[in-house]
Amino acid sequence: MGNLRSVSKAIEHVAPAASVVATSDPAVIAAAGRVVFPGQGAAPDCMREIEARGLRQAIVDAARSKPFLGICMGMQVLFEHSEEGDTACLGILPGTVQRFPHEAMHDDQGNKLKVPHMGWNNVHQAAPHPLWVGIEEGARFYFVHSYFVQPTSPDVIAGFSHYPFPFTCAVASGNIFAVQFHPEKSQNDGLTLLGNFLTWNPGE
């Protein structure tokens, strides 16, 4: 599982004393104090793997009960449905996942904008949250994705970015925080966000 290693390494870097385990074992997920859910590949494959490994319930339980950080595809599959491969997702958060629409992909000078949305973009903090502490409003994070989430309720929107229209790039709901960008690849600000997650106690 490719970028799992990047995520583990980044967490180990900010919390050398933490025990970081990359696992697909439901029992290990159930026993963990905190869960980071990166997801990988395309939505249909990601969901197929989750079902094949019997992980659906473990993920749903973790998202209900402990600090839970979704990253990239791990954010998208928390919603109900993805346009990517017409995929039914976990449905933990109400909303859908859509592709950047071809006809909208140009800047105000008419230049074509590429998809995937790849590179460093500004993240605007829609609401204060413990995971934003120490990160400047508008800080740049590294993105690589062709689909974005559209939450049913605007209340869960924690951050947004522009490409070229505003899209949700961070959501917060109870003990869930999820981001479209890659904190593990976003240098200092990314490490700050991961460090914040490791000390975050939802509900306090």
Partner: peptide
């Protein structure tokens, strides 16, 4: 990858899917 937290690309000598997997596992993005 254990110390530098920006995207890393690796090229050269990639011949099969197994090569891709090994590089991703090592920390290539």
């Amino acid at each position: 990858a254990a110390e530098v937290f920006i995207p890393l690309t690796v090229g050269g000598g990639v011949r099969e899917v197994g090569d891709v997997q090994r590089l991703l596992n090592a920390g290539a993005d």
